[in-house]
Computed example of a mutant assay.
Amino acid sequence: MPLPGKARARREEMLVQLRELFLTEGFSSFNIGDLAERLRCSRTTLYAVAPSKEQIVVAVVRSFFKTAAERIEARVAASADPARRLAIYLEAVAAELQPASAMFFADVADFGPANDVYQENTQYAARRVQALVTEGVRAGALRPVHASFVGAAAAEVMGAIQRGTIQATTGLDAAEAYRQLADLVMTSLTDPKERTREGGR
């Protein structure tokens, strides 16, 4: 049964506040009492988000990725250039992950249901990369490559970023790692002559 308008608006407000807190400090160290104190609200208000702390965490993590995906797709839709659309997508993913702390990513990795949400979004991102590569190749804006392979390779890197392997190996946080992935993908798929012309403009 849908929530009444006022209750729905209050729930969305709580999700925003919880997202900001979790992105900055993670969530494993908080219990419901801690969250109520930090957000200056009642436990009842928190339980309107979800009926347990674990479900609140999943709701917040899902909300974070849903909101991020909407903003990313809006940026992609604003460009008609097939090559730029791929670059915009990868750059926008990096920008959306920028506010997330290492503690947030560590907590997500350690909590199965939240990690499942992250994995779902990583898989979706890989499919979007594949689709955008296909679009760019068909338009002649990108070199002819095996789009499924590029999507699969991107998914492997995204998974390594999520698991913390990339940061452990390179010292790059998730946002910067995605920026490097964007640079790698675009450099490999764009004709060097086109890059030279773009750089000279």
Rank of each mutant, 00 (worst) to 15 (best):
R10A: 14
R10M: 09
E13D: 11
L15M: 04
Q17H: 09
L18V: 08
R19H: 11
E20P: 00
F22R: 07
F22C: 06
L23G: 09
T24C: 03
E25R: 12
E25V: 00
F27R: 13
I32D: 05
L35F: 07
A36F: 02
L46C: 08
V49T: 05
S52V: 04
K53S: 12
Q55E: 15
R62P: 04
R62D: 15
F65V: 09
F65E: 13
K66G: 04
K66R: 15
A68P: 12
E70L: 14
E73K: 12
R75I: 07
A78C: 13
A83T: 10
R85S: 05
I88S: 02
Y89F: 15
L90A: 15
A92P: 13
E96G: 07
Q98R: 15
P99S: 14
A102C: 03
F104T: 10
F105G: 05
A109H: 11
D110T: 04
G112T: 13
D116S: 11
Q119Y: 06
N121Y: 06
Q123I: 06
A131N: 10
V133W: 05
E135A: 05
E135T: 00
R138I: 00
A141G: 01
R143I: 00
A147N: 00
F149E: 03
A153M: 06
Q162H: 07
T165G: 03
I166E: 06
I166S: 08
Q167G: 04
Q167C: 01
A168T: 08
T169Q: 13
R179Y: 11
Q180N: 03
L181F: 00
L184A: 09
T190M: 14
